[in-house]
Design a protein around this nucleic acid. Structure first.
Lengths: 214, 214
DNA sequence: CTAATACCTGCATAATTATGTAGTTTAGCC
DNA sequence: GGCTAAACTACATAATTATGCAGGTATTAG
């Protein structure tokens, strides 16, 4: 990781908290405070001007919510890491934040040292998050990587056609897309069916998706 | 989180490292060392007897690899958290570890304080992992939660039938499964097509999966 | 009570798909 | 050079699917 200082912006409507966060960031040599704002109404311009490495974002601000703000930041400055700050460990909000593009989130009651860690983690690509979110994310991750059926060997063309099938294409459309005759499409699909032990397009699609053949 | 001590087992074939890890765990009042083993050949019995909260597992051990060992632990004691320890930041191995059931992993060169943090995190349901893994997992997570098409309102029966289609069922099979006539299946599918603006089973399946309608 | 909704059934026809058989071309391998 | 795998083309038939039309029942909201 680069040994530069980490540039931090803060969005927090509570004045006392905003100032104490600012102080925390300013005090440490490894951080540099870009600026602290009480709302995110102009976040696009503000971020564009100062380009922080990390933004600390209160999830509930008047005007523009933290979640909406994250989306704006991610759409315009995908490299800027955003850490959400919440009072409550609200799974739903955190989920939505992460989906909007936040890389992590911290409870406001967290110790300053935890917050510092989180900022550092975020800056170098990590994902500081709460245990309950982490376990949900991990669980989902595992589901996505369940056993893959590798016994089936499809040729390049067959994979191409199977992919088209899963995208909802008909024989005719596949023939056009691949510049081959419809009879050839039939031929390949026949072979695919044999290899997958199925007898219809939907079965093939289902199996392809389940076994991650494509 | 429970204020009990965290019971830790260690699997590590390198004697020096095993002993220094043991010492680290023993020294701290918040941890209790169950036992340290040089290999995982009898991990099922060993884990069953002592039931640790967290296992520190070397990823590369002679006899039974750490990844295989994780699987055994997870299959038999799903509540035991396993943290993998690796020398290299090998994405593939870590991915496989996580899929096997590990909740996190640490580089062996990590500072003791980081390891302690990781054990604590793991014990309370967290997922201590490396930034590169974290970001991959997060990315995947977002993909799974991309915008859902909520404009389409399917009735209960229609959803049921659409689900059957995505599982590769034919009209006939759906009719049997739902105990309705094949003409009724036709009727419902016609309506589904109208709502989804499609004209074939595969298109419907494709759209259903893409828009997470089911 | 009436309208609306979801669910159900039947019939008919055109289009598409499933499956078999049969042969050609092309690129890489021993 | 001959062999093999992958890709391609063609024709034929049975089965399934797509779509339209017509109408029945049951539950619910106004």
């Amino acid at each position: 990781m680069k040994k530069n200082v980490i540039r931090v912006s803060i969005y927090e409507d509570n004045k006392a908290l905003r100032e104490s966060l600012s102080k925390l960031v300013e005090t440490l040599p490894e951080f540099e405070l870009c600026k602290a704002y009480p709302n995110a109404l102009n976040i696009k311009e503000e971020t564009g001007k100062l380009i922080p490495d990390v933004i600390l974002m209160d999830i509930g601000m008047p005007g523009l919510s933290g979640i909406e703000a994250v989306k704006i930041v991610k759409d315009n400055f995908p490299d800027v890491k955003v850490i959400m700050q919440t009072v409550f460990d609200d799974d739903d909000k955190v989920f939505r934040s992460i989906c909007a593009g936040a890389v992590g989130y911290m409870l406001k009651k967290s110790a300053p040292s935890d917050l510092i860690d989180a900022i550092k983690q975020a800056a170098c690509g990590g994902a500081p998050m709460t245990p309950s979110i982490a376990s949900k994310v991990l669980h989902l991750f595992r589901q996505q990587h369940i056993p893959v059926n590798n016994e089936v060997e499809l040729s390049v063309r067959e994979k191409e056609i199977l992919t088209s099938l899963t995208n909802g294409f008909s024989y005719k459309m596949i023939a056009e897309k691949c510049c081959i005759s419809i009879d050839t499409v039939r031929f390949h699909i026949k072979n695919i069916y044999e290899k997958l032990h199925v007898h219809s397009m939907t079965e093939a699609v289902s199996k392809a998706l389940k076994d991650r053949l494509i």
